[in-house]
Design a protein around this nucleic acid. Sequence first.
RNA 1: CGGGGUGUAGCGUAGUCUGGUUAUCGCGUCUGCUUUGGGAGCAGAAGGUCGUCGGUUCGAAUCCGGCCACCCCGACCA
Length: 489
Amino acid sequence: MSKVITPKEQDYSQWYNDLVIKAGLADHSAVKGCMVIKPYGYAIWERMQAVLDGMFKATGHSNAYFPLFIPKSFFAKEAAHVDGFAKECAVVTHYRLKNTPEGLIVDPDAKLDEELIVRPTSETIIWNTYKGWIQSYRDLPLLINQWANVVRWEMRTRLFLRTAEFLWQEGHTAHATQQEAIVEAEKMLDVYTEFAEKWMSMPVIKGTKTASERFAGALETYCIEAMMQDGKALQAGTSHFLGQNFAKAFDVKFLNKEGKSEHVWATSWGVSTRLMGALVMTHSDNEGLVLPPQLAPQQVVIIPIYKGDEQLAQINEVVSKITKTFDADGVRYKYDSTDHHSPGWKFAEYELKGVPIRLAIGARDLEKGTIEVHRRDTRTKQFVPIEGIEKFVKNMLDEISTNLYKKAEELRTNNSHKANTYEEFKEILDKKSGFVWAHWDGTSETEEKIKDDTKATIRCIPLNNTQEEGKCIYSGKPSKQRVIFAKAY
RNA sequence: CGGGGUGUAGCGUAGUCUGGUUAUCGCGUCUGCUUUGGGAGCAGAAGGUCGUCGGUUCGAAUCCGGCCACCCCGACCA
């Protein structure tokens, strides 16, 4: 009983931290604010990457790689962008160290003429580059993605949810028309939505951000918002329509069919290792991680229960028949026949790691021709015939995937409320948390005041939102639709 | 960056208030035997700059100061 997880009812934050560390997803590192992603955590991220990368390719994008360092002068060119990111940039000022009697120091003679910013995002270096790539409408659209690390010097960090350095992908596209760029931004939001819902079993709400929550330099920011088990909102992905802001800042023009020179239209979009945090907080329980089968590095773990080598050999034989069918069907499994832990220990360990299905097989099963099947999401077990087990397992994997989605959706439904007055609004946030659908007058002033007052922010203005006449809960001014307020990560 | 807390073996800890032989216990690790259907048992062993630097003292895990790291709460953000 060495790996005890704090129950989430007792302390949700501690539960999350315990889970990330004890399930072996990540560790704190020797560097302030930076984490080490451990092999098990990275394996999940690699699955996310593989799926997303395939979706990007399928929508016509190509991968490329741009520098980690951005000259300060590039960074300065787009005013809103600077305002948004200046406060959290790591800056490289020197290029050499020097060994002195007092110890290793930064060589004062090796000062860079121009400081380099460690990228917090790559719009500026990329648009500086695109200037050389785009001359004609024939060069458009330009659809590029990069997988990279970025650095944002955060004051307070949490594993996966907010670290000084994190991994992500950032798509950067250039288009001939405004309409085409908007379509692209919305298309990538749909890709993220599909990824969240189909691959993470995590329901999300698509929407747009208010002006104050918008990306620095964007005309419109689209987002997907998910609800965590404590009722707080988590932004799981963003897609931005950048207008011509960066094209103008970096003077990126193209000749259209009429031979006229125009600035191009841009988008950028990204998801990060923050999705790992979302995954943990959407499905897991007090016993450990619960992973959706679509992303689990191992979907099935098989544990033999045996006395002596002879029994193990018999079990091995049966198991190898099962794993052959798994290989053929593309089921990811692990057969753990190691001898240094008891079956009970392994049960607990793989539950902690969130493996969706556990098969246990022992002497009694060999006699009866059965196998014990344990489901991680419901923590139920049953004995089923070995004959046809692969079909049974495949069905169960699908059921788990559907069930996880359904449970998350139910949680969101149960924690979504409408508020018609400010008193009602505050009471809901106080007592129930979750999403509050309320009318808002559309001004940043009102948004700001509500935030100061309640700590809740407007998570998004849902796309395809129901239109209804109403009054702003704060100012009483007329409003045509409800927006989603919540406390957020 | 402000407030609070923590730092003793891989992990969790006792000891700190009231300084004094060889720093406590549990888990884990290693060896051997017995075990194996929900975190196995017995026997033995290894493992420590007490976060770090400095000060006080005959003597510091313990008292004082600086620094560092991490956690929690706030402001800022994906």
